[in-house]
């Protein structure tokens, strides 16, 4: 029982650490948006092209954040190690 408690608490800490990559993802996305706005202000006639390129850039920058989120979700709700441990304990 104690082992199970340790595994579950470590899984929660791991989920929190996995979500920390949101910090860097947000920095990256902020940079994309800032640059896009700057170039839109410089060239308002190219605003539409810049906007669509910005959305694509935002989506690519978001990928790592999504990976972290998925790892956190797997750790919390579908942790394979916990199930294995439960079957080991019996």
């Amino acid at each position: 029982m104690e082992t199970l408690g340790i595994v579950i608490s470590v899984a929660h800490i791991a989920a929190a650490i996995a979500l920390l990559n949101g910090v860097f993802t947000t920095f990256g996305q902020a940079r994309v948006a800032a640059q896009a706005i700057e170039s839109m202000a410089r060239q308002p006639e190219a605003a539409d092209d810049i906007r669509s390129a910005m959305f694509v850039g935002l989506a690519f920058a978001e990928t790592s954040g999504i990976y972290g989120l998925l790892i956190a979700i797997i750790m919390l709700f579908a942790n394979p190690l916990v199930n294995r441990l439960i079957s080991l304990i019996g």
Partner: peptide
């Protein structure tokens, strides 16, 4: 994989 995870993660986070 990245394409599917992006959509899945966003929709799942809203659902959660």
């Amino acid at each position: 994989v990245a394409l599917s995870f992006r959509l899945f993660g966003n929709m799942l986070s809203g659902t959660i």
